[in-house]
Design a protein around this nucleic acid. Structure first.
Lengths: 302, 302
DNA sequence: TGGGCCGTTGCGATTTCGGAAACAGGGGCC
DNA sequence: GGCCCCTGTTTCCGAAATCGCAACGGCCCA
């Protein structure tokens, strides 16, 4: 919408903390941008940025204003979606932040299913860790977040939650793959481990459990990429640790759940920002998503 | 704010139901206005007005949009007020809708007291009957409403409420003025009555009480203006019926409360629109107003 | 069947906005 | 201290959006 142009300028400068960088992103020149900012500050009767040598930093008034801008954009999006909805066309956009563990099956399946019904709904899927996903919600960069073990936050409104048991993941020829059913953690730890690094919630969960029993971790490989770990496990007899929803359907891979006595299940959660009224398209998708997760994993949210 | 210009156009066309009248109010030509409307409809991908021979009427999409526009303007006003507030200057605007009964003492006293503290806060005071006052809140035409006997509405959030006993009002020489203290309604009804007409809550209250006991009303004079009734009472030996807060401090006038057995007290209520976050200046005023009403009348809300 | 109202359109004038380049000022570094 | 690189800002000028004016076509009502 045209009338948001100037507000977008402010938001962009706030985001980048510098006029020149913001101008580049907006495809205009710094001169045009600095004038718009000055105009707004004149209209408000007070500066909204503090000029520092490194660029522009929001002051208290600016913080209030950018929050208003974000709210206003979200609300307009909701209105547009409602308008599109009542004309019969299911139109809209869904911004989803999710943990890496869900890029294999859960999210693509769901997006595909929804787009089969409503092809005019578009998606952006950002892969974020549990902390960043919550931040994405509060920053209005995402409408929904699907995360493992989210930090407790009053800003989040849970749409669905359940428990996920961690699995040991190895290639088909691995000794542990000879049996099925739950496996004890100590039986895994005798093998070289290829585990997620500390940027991922799975690793924190593992470290906590190991710390409580004083067991050392034999981490041969650690990576921030679950996909990398899976590819590595295919190449050598290492054991990785992943959540079931992140394990692709590959006959060369074998997974066995870790015994619950060794590692408590992790929580999986679909959430939105508390108090936000989502656009119809987004709300509809969230609804279906929660229902589908319920079918898939049984437990349910709130 | 500049960016609201186009939105203001839409709102004004919606209010007047015609481009030409709206254009006149906006000091622009109809041609400029019609183009802006068309631009917005193009951006939204759908008309927001239905073109009828009499002018423009909002359709469903338009209703959604103008609601957004109203919300957006109110929110910006709140932000501006918060910004002004944190710079130390108490700036802002208060829009109050009140019943006629309060234009003598209550509201002017309160506005004067508040403006003595914060001269840069401005006021608009609209006199409305109880129904219109609530409508003014929901239409965002007023931030606060001070009304007698408001119709119960889920949209209203009560900030203060108490009971007001109706008073018989006559000139000093009137027979009823010989005594003080409560007076029975039947003692009033033998005199010619100068009562509010049916546009005022007081009259409905009176009619209800009389209907219950089958007593006829000897209404010599009725008027929608309480001030007119007071002026009339000064000129002849009629009896009027008013609430205490509406009776000016005039030695030529005498008032006696109606016995509670004859006429139950009416409710007085200060309210805002439920769920709205008022600008700081307005909220501060509402706070003081509620406190002052509490001092004046004892009972308290909500 | 005119007259009055409505929204809409083409065209010229005005205002606003954006681009290029030069300017001013504050760190970091040698 | 002087240089360099970064920052925001200013000036001048061209481009684009906006507006006003006048005319047009449609509808309702007398």
């Amino acid at each position: 919408m045209k009338h948001l142009r100037i507000l977008t300028y402010v938001a962009e400068v706030a985001r980048h903390g510098a006029i020149r960088r913001a101008a580049e992103r907006l495809n205009i020149t710094p001169s045009a941008l600095t004038r718009q900012i000055q105009d707004i500050e004149y209209e408000l009767g007070t500066p909204i940025f503090e000029r520092v040598a490194q660029g522009m930093r929001l002051n208290a008034a600016g913080e209030l204003l950018v929050r208003h801008i974000r709210d206003q954009r979200a609300d307009l999006e909701r209105v547009r979606s409602q308008i599109a909805d009542l004309s019969g066309v299911r139109r809209g956009h869904v911004a989803l932040a999710c943990s890496q563990a869900f890029v294999n099956h859960v999210v693509p399946d769901e997006v595909e299913a929804y787009r089969a019904l409503f092809p005019q709904v578009t998606f952006t899927v950002q892969v974020r860790d549990h902390v960043q996903a919550v931040a994405a919600l509060t920053q209005f960069e995402a409408d929904l977040a699907l995360v493992l073990q989210p930090p407790p936050s009053a800003d989040m409104q849970v749409l669905f939650s359940c428990r996920q048991t961690l699995c040991a993941l190895m290639r088909a020829g691995h000794p542990l793959a000879a049996e099925t059913g739950p496996v004890r953690l100590r039986d895994c730890l005798v093998h070289p481990m290829a585990v997620p690094d500390r940027s991922l919630a799975i690793r924190h969960h593992l470290d906590d459990a190991l710390a409580r029993r004083g067991t050392p971790l034999n981490a041969v490989i650690e990576s921030s990429s679950l996909e990398f770990l899976r590819n590595l496990v295919l190449r050598e007899d290492a054991v990785s640790l992943q959540v079931p929803s992140g394990i692709p359907d590959d006959p060369r891979l074998c997974s066995r759940p870790i015994d619950a006595r060794d590692l408590p299940p992790m929580s999986l959660m679909l959430a939105q920002l508390r108090g936000r009224t989502l656009p119809v398209a987004t709300a509809k998708f969230a609804d279906r998503f929660a229902g589908s997760l319920h079918q898939r994993y049984g437990a349910q949210g709130p």
